[in-house]
Design a protein around this nucleic acid. Structure first.
Length: 299
DNA sequence: TGGTGACGCGCACGAACTCT
DNA sequence: AGAGTTCGTGCGCGTCACCA
């Protein structure tokens, strides 16, 4: 379902490489009926972890009453809003993540079978999983651990958060994936996966080459329009975005590990125009190439 | 050498359609 | 019903010109 653009929230996630973020919402002395989560939607998954107070969260027009310890899983693209159910503090944490976080798992067949269908929106977990199957409640502690990791921000916390999120998806999938699909395997629901995997491997090894959507579509024997659609469905990013992110990751490495000029590095990652390189680097990395180098020298 | 503004064109995406 | 095609349209990618 697509909701009006006015209700769309441009949720800013931590980093292009680790597209997740923790939002700790604290509504002090809320009154019954107060809006504690304004009406909006976005293209990310959201896990709402209730800490204090009680509330009713509407997800796609369906109400879910939440108490401390409850968890609400809001699918990507769902419209949601929340109101306090009592007088007093209402505190809840939201873990927001984009499906593209797990792009590097794409070639893993078990991921493709059990986790990818949820990320790609072909299956959905129940919004309030504990109501459907109590055996999933022990997995909730993973979300608490993720929140702690976010707060502590210890070295490499991004990897710990990512691993725990993947574990959470996997365990939840174990509980909720319909039996017949679990048995089917990946082949049935994405017949083009093998062709795309090969293309993605090619892009990753030749990211500096100029490849148009038309050429890429030809590689997988599809027309460009349908190719764009499938590529986004599979990777969570558009083709151009995917290539650019690969290029900027490599550029970041080169900036840190070599003394080459920014113009030289731009050329090495396939950006003939260094001006344009600076712009997209800033877009995906949040700072200019020279800032990256300066910061690296300070560290 | 690196960063930014303006602009044209290719890309992304939704809708409607055909095919199997 | 799902896979794949075609088309219209708005937006953002990529380029050029210019400035610090």
């Amino acid at each position: 379902m697509t909701y009006p653009k006015e209700l769309w929230e441009d949720t800013v996630l931590e980093h292009a490489e680790y597209p997740f973020q923790l939002f700790q919402n604290r509504c002090a002395s809320a009154k019954t009926g107060d809006c504690i989560l304004y009406l909006h939607w976005h293209e990310h998954f959201e896990f709402l972890v209730m800490q204090t107070g009680s509330a009713v969260i509407h997800v796609d027009s369906r109400p879910y009453v939440v108490q401390p310890g409850d968890i609400i899983l809001i699918p990507a693209g769902s419209l949601h809003v929340g109101y306090s159910l009592g007088d007093g503090d209402v505190n809840y944490d939201c873990i927001v993540l984009n499906a593209s976080l797990f792009n590097d798992w794409l070639s893993d067949p078990v991921h493709a079978q059990y986790v990818a269908p949820y990320l790609e929106g072909r299956f959905q977990f129940p919004v309030k999983p504990a109501d459907q199957d109590e055996t999933c409640i022990p997995y909730y502690s993973l979300l608490d651990e993720i929140i702690q990791e976010f707060s502590a921000k210890a070295p490499a916390y991004q990897l710990v958060v990512k691993s725990k999120l993947h574990l959470f998806f996997t365990l939840m999938s174990r509980s909720f994936m319909p039996q017949q699909f679990a048995e089917q395997g990946e082949r049935a629901y994405f017949p083009n996966r093998e062709r795309f995997k090969q293309l993605i491997r090619q892009i990753e090894s030749r990211y500096a080459d100029k490849v148009t959507v038309e050429q890429a579509a030809k590689e997988v024997s599809l027309n460009p329009y349908y190719f764009c659609k499938l590529f986004k469905r599979l990777t969570g990013r558009t083709f151009v975005e995917y290539v650019n992110i690969l290029r900027m990751k490599e550029a970041k490495r080169l900036l840190k590990e070599s003394n080459d000029s920014i113009t030289e590095i731009a050329a090495r990652v396939g950006c003939e125009n260094p001006n344009y390189f600076t712009r997209i680097y800033k877009k995906y990395m949040g700072m200019t190439p020279s800032q990256t180098r300066k910061r690296d020298m300070i560290e």
